[in-house]
Structures are given as C-alpha cells and as structure tokens.
Design a binder for these strands. Structure first.
Length: 447
RNA sequence: GGCGCGAUGGCGGAGAGGCUACGCAGCGGCCUGCAAAGCCGUGUACACCGGUUCGAAUCCGGUUCGCGCCUCCA
C-alpha cells in the first residue's frame, strides 16, 4: 500500500518514501504547558496519532517524537501571576494534557522530551550556528541572521522583503537585520535561566524543537507535523536553524500541517464563551465522540467544532455500539479499504464512511478491527451505555429496576395505561426504556 | 497593504471533467400494545459571474463572503 501525503514544502500531495525504509521518523510540535489544552490543541494530537498508527501498520519501525515545551515566557508569566512554582505548573499541566489526550484515544508518542532536559543541546546548537556564521551575539542575545540563509522562507513562501514590509512590530535595535530572530535571550534574576557562553539566559522559542528533533531523530528525518499556524514563523525558523546547524539540505522530508479550528462558527475566545478545553468537554461528552468529530473532517480542511457536532458523533457511536452488541474484537486485521483510504493523505472521512458500511456486516470483526485501529470503539457496549456526563444527577438503579418489573407485569396483564405512565415517569428523569427481545433495558437519554 | 486557505443538499462531510458518495435529520413503509432500535424505500447540492470543453461542482479568469499568517510581542 503506497502512502501519499500532502507536503507543505511543495504544496502538493506526494508519494511517501521514507529516508530509511525500515525506520520512519516523525516529529510533532507538542503543547506549551501553562494551561489546559483546548480543542484546537487536540486536533494535531489526534490527527498525527492517526498518522502514527498508520505508519506503524505500513513500516517495521516508527519513532514518533512529540515534545513538551516547559520553558516559555507565558509559563513564567503564569507563575508570577499565581505564585505557583514553575515546575509545579508544568508538571501539573503536562499530566492533565496526557490524560486528556489519552481520553481522546491518542496513544502516547514514543518519546516525549521536555525542554528543561535539553537546554544543553540547545546551547550546543546555538554555539554551532555562531560558528557557521549564521548567528551572532548582541547585548546578551544570540540571534539567527536570516540573510545568512539563502533559502529562508522556502516553507512559508514568505520572502524576507515581504516580511519586513509587513512587519507590525518595532525592530529591536540590536538586530543586524529586521528579520533576525532570537536563539538565546538573557534572563533577569526573577526569570528562570541557564548558564551559557553568552551569560545566564534562556532559549528562544524555536530552538527547542530543532534541538530535540536532532537529539532523537537525527539531522534529517521523515515527517514534521503541527498546526498550520506553526508554518510561520515557528517551522520556518526551525528549518533554518536545523539546516544550518546540521549542515543539511533539509530538516524533514515531509512537512504536514493540519487546518484551523473554529468553535461554533467563530474563532475560539474566552469572551465569546466558545473556548472549549478538552478537560471540560470530557465532562460533557465521551472522549470517543470528540475524537470522531476530529476525524470526521479531513485534517487539512478547516473545522468548525460545535457541541451539536459532538452530540451527533455520539449518536453515531451509540448506533455502532448497538450494532456490535456483545461482539468483542478477535483480530487486528484491518480491512484494505480502511488502510487505502487513510493512505490517501489520511482521508479519515472516507475511512469513516467505510466504517459505516462495515458496521452493517453480519460479522462485526472487520468493523471492530478497523474502528479500534482508528482509536474508536475501544470499550464494551455495556460500558459505553453506562457513560454519563459529570454533572448528571445520580440514578437510583434499584428504583428503576423496581419500576421496570412493575411495568413488565402491567404489560403482561395488558394494563397499558400503567405501562405508559411508568415510561413517562422515567422519561421525565432522563431514563429511556427499550423493550427488547429479552426484556426491557434502560439507558440514559444523553443527547 | 503583502502572502495563503476555504465555500458542496436542512445539517455534517468526501469526491473531482461525463458514473452525481456516506452519515444525521425529513418523508413513506415493514415491525411494535406504545415507544425505541432495526430493516426497506425516497427527495434535496456543488457561493456568484464569465471562459475552455461535445460535456464543468470538478479546469481557467474575475467577484463576493469567511478564516489564517505577516517574527519573541500585551
């Protein structure tokens, strides 16, 4: 099966040919851990989780690296504001992030490096860039000199001149060129800092990914992923740093970017009330429903994330869980139709169409294998239907059973008035009764 | 201002020069004491205006609307 992926470098779909056919290497930019991840942060996680799962099917070995950025001025600001220790903020936020992403059915990456453990590598790379003449020291800063790299702008397709023409921000006086960006900057006493040849300071925004990618994946690797918003400046600058420091013609062979996400038709913002953290959404909806919403749209398309959309995804999963009944997965033979759809630049919507078709098969094995592969249908139908929102009123199961028994007797004696009364009574409490072939069952009315 | 992305039926969402997906919702039917579920059937579409072509939702040009980025900075 040939994999095709859209490469941002060429802006076209290309045949995926790994640098080394027995080992595929992928780096995805992870979160800056200073607050809870929102649904926009979750999109690349779920998308590249799906890609990693597919790569593991297609190739003997995959190394998937996703970093944790725990050095950042937003973290420093949060700490100053709340008084919470920086390490405490980043540890706590990292843990919640990992749990939330697991709840969305995403497998952990193979390596999840933290910036604080790799400052030495960043210092080394910064030093190397000074040596190659691509960077210079100025007033305690080390800056990457953009004009020193002829091909700067190849990823974002911004020319240096355009950037300067459109610049909205005052250029720092110590920059040799207005487009130059920071590799290292000085820290005052109140700010975390590390000793370096240029004094006590901290790394700039982009160098961490260059350093950690190099550490775990080598000078050149196969796929570099992230959200479209990272193309410029983050990935453009990473690319420049890595190429110059590693003396290579590329950093990653394929650059993949997922599209933007909006919420309820508008850009997410706290003031609009449409700022959804994954953590909060998980109180309201099962993680699989959120994952399905994210996979229902092709990763490069814009996605308007809505609560109604999650509710609809949940109804789809309700249907699938009803369809599988007591079937449990017995194999992990994923049908070709699924692999084929995903191999076409991760066409998850097409794969989901295929899931709909497979769910109707008499044997549920192909369906279960395919859905599991996509990180869906990972629980028993029983467990699925037991799920309830965090704020749901507790149900008195015993009382419900008593009423069901009474209703069964009423129905047996054709007392349908009483039977319907019980149905209505329970419906008012959000309990739906279903008369099946082997008795009456109940479930919560969630959506 | 510069650069880029998007627009498909009531909704979600693939596809892509002729075969007009799929899901939800709707409608009709079967089933059911009722209901739910299930099954069968069914309608509705490619933002707008031109062009290329025997044929365009799909290619080209323009328009409109929506969105993003333009470097460490709140």
């Amino acid at each position: 099966m040939t994999l095709h992926v859209h490469n941002t470098l060429s802006r076209t779909k290309e045949t995926f040919e790994p640098i080394s056919s027995d080992h595929v290497r992928m780096y995805v930019c992870g979160p800056t851990v200073y607050n809870l991840a929102h649904i926009g942060n979750a999109r690349p996680v779920v998308v590249f989780d799906m890609l990693a799962r597919l790569l593991r099917r297609l190739y003997p070995k995959v190394t998937y690296v996703r970093n944790i950025t725990d050095i950042d001025d937003k973290i420093n600001a949060a700490s100053r504001e709340t008084g919470e220790d920086i390490r405490s903020i980043t540890d706590r936020t990292t843990k919640v992030f990992q749990n939330d992403m697991a709840a969305l059915g995403s497998l952990p990456p193979d390596v999840e490096p933290r910036c604080t453990d790799h400052v030495d590598q960043m210092i080394r790379m910064t030093g190397e860039l000074i040596e190659t003449g691509n960077a210079y020291e100025a007033e305690g800063h080390v800056l990457f000199n953009v004009p020193s790299m002829a091909e700067y702008g190849q990823l974002s397709r911004h020319s240096r001149d355009e950037l300067i023409a459109g610049a909205r921000v005052d250029v720092a006086p110590y920059k040799r060129d207005p487009a130059d960006f920071v590799l290292w900057k000085p820290s005052d006493e109140a700010t975390p800092g590390w000793d370096s040849p240029w004094g006590r300071g901290r790394p700039g925004w982009h160098i961490e990914c260059s350093a950690m990618a190099q550490e775990y994946l080598g000078n050149e690797f196969d796929i570099h992923g992230g959200g479209q918003d990272l193309i410029f400046p983050h990935h453009e600058n990473e690319l420049a740093q890595s190429r110059c420091a590693n003396h290579t013609g590329s950093m990653a062979k394929y650059w993949m970017h997922n599209g933007y996400l909006m919420a309820e038709g508008e850009k997410m913002s706290k003031s609009l009330g449409n700022f959804y953290t994954v953590h909060d959404l998980l109180d309201e909806f099962p993680g699989e429903a959120i994952r399905l919403v994210l996979l229902q749209t092709h990763y490069r398309q814009p996605l308007d994330f809505t609560k109604e959309g999650i509710a609809e995804a949940k109804r789809t999963l309700d249907k699938w869980y009803r369809a599988i009944g007591d079937h449990v997965p017995e194999s992990d033979d994923v049908p070709d139709s699924i692999t084929r759809a995903l191999s076409d630049d991760l066409n998850t919507p097409k794969a989901i169409t295929e899931l709909h078709r497979l769910s109707g098969d008499a044997s549920k094995q192909a369906f279960l294998a395919a859905a599991n592969f996509m990180g869906l249908m990972q629980q028993s139908a029983d467990d699925w239907f037991k799920w309830s929102p965090a704020d749901a009123a507790p149900v008195d199961e015993a009382a419900i059973e008593v009423l069901i028994t009474e209703r069964t007797e009423a129905r047996a004696s054709k007392d349908f008035a009483r039977s319907d009364e019980i149905r209505d009574e329970l419906a008012a409490q959000g309990i739906v009764l279903e008369d099946g072939a082997d008795g009456t069952t109940w479930k919560r009315k969630n959506s």
